[in-house]
Write a protein that binds this DNA or RNA. Structure first.
Lengths: 218, 218
DNA sequence: TTATGAAATTGACCACGGTCATTTTTATAA
DNA sequence: TTATAAAAATGACCGTGGTCAATTTCATAA
């Protein structure tokens, strides 16, 4: 049984987060230094590590909070009516997660809960994405019904992460995440619907353009 | 134009790799210390970094070589005739890539080529996986024909990586990678074939068991 | 053989994340 | 008010990855 934290501790934690937030806003996530955080927050280094598991843990929390805001906004928007709309709606979140290599690595590393109780903000965000997709997918006309909707939802996320990872691959980074993920999502959600049945894709090459490595973080 | 490396340099490089290989074999990838490597190899620290970009780069090379051996063995084996066989055949490679968190992180990070010329051993391995799948998939009876086979192959890899990542998630680590990936691959490759048409799955719960976060590295 | 410049190597040095025994502060009971 | 124990914070210290100006070794031409 641990007691409730004292007021001083909460204030210290707030100062640490405030200082870190400012540094990240100024120098980007990769520019965060623990020594800078504690200097700006006016505390000792050891204090930092009594509040956060390690540097990346704090960073993951900050990124998770931003992801939460983006996803919350998506969730309150209109339900997409086509696969293309679905991809467009989630695109801002994907672009944030893969804004650069450093961020994407952290997102990936913290995307799963190592223990049931220590779920990170990012892991929760992924759960919420699956929940939202589970709600939305049945609303889209023409969606396959032969597999469970949760399997479908998790599959969408798998393809999305893969497309994000390809952003950092020289062979694929010419196209946007959205353009890379769309063919997969369409084939996953609407098998047998044919390749060219949506005019929105006429302005780009067909799916044969996707040769090269498929991976998650490259 | 850079000249050919001198014999001395090749010998030094060989000694570094030899020392690193021995340490990894003894202490595991996470136990590798640059200072230990250079001590065992009998060179200065700076020499290490004139041969390898950084520590993880060397580690990625060593892991990539092991992956190459495993994949080569898979490639010379018989062509799988069902989705289940396909999953089984690739399983040893997946188990290696996700043998632990540390290894999986490196595999993910190096799975894509940052520049076209600096393709790592791991990135090449992923390309080879796609090539092999592209050859094999059309051989499997009942495989869908409505999308390009390369799209199909890359999708398999995307699901495989996702299933590997789930190994490190408390909500999913009870099942093997193979068990986690199979429902996705089947739904991806054989849409509309129904859920329970393969008796091999009778001994496990159906796909509804897959609730929880879907992600790549959790 | 010798001069010369490039290749290869060196190791002192730095940056930075993380640790932990010690000290200070706070809440609570006598 | 005072004693006491837990909570909170401290900062000197360490481990280790990575840097770079200086040095040594090597290949080549004069």
């Amino acid at each position: 049984m641990s007691r409730a934290p004292q007021k001083r501790r909460l204030e210290t934690r707030a100062r640490l987060i405030e200082a870190a937030t400012a540094i990240v806003a100024r120098d980007g996530p990769a520019g965060l230094r623990v020594e800078d955080v504690v200097r700006d927050a006016g505390v000792a280094k050891g204090t930092f590590f009594s509040h956060f598991e390690d540097k990346d843990s704090l960073l993951a929390q900050l990124l998770g909070e931003e992801m939460h805001v983006i996803l919350a906004k998506i969730a309150t928007g209109p339900v997409p009516q086509t696969v293309e709309e679905l991809c467009d709606v989630f695109d801002p979140l994907y672009e944030f997660m893969a804004r650069d290599r450093f961020v994407f690595d952290i997102v990936m590393r913290y995307s799963g809960a190592t223990a049931v109780d220590e779920a990170t903000e990012i892991a929760l965000n992924f759960l919420h994405q699956v929940e939202l997709l589970t709600l939305w997918l049945p609303e889209i006309p023409g969606i396959r019904r032969d597999v469970d909707v949760e399997l479908l939802a998790e599959g969408v996320l798998a393809f999305a992460l893969n497309a994000m990872g390809l952003k950092f691959c020289a062979l694929h980074n010419a196209r946007s995440i959205n353009d890379r993920v769309r063919p997969y999502i369409r084939a996953w959600l609407q098998p047998g619907s044919g390749e060219g049945d949506h005019k929105a894709d006429a302005d780009q090459q067909d799916t044969r353009d996707d040769v090269g490595a498929a991976q998650g973080a490259g």
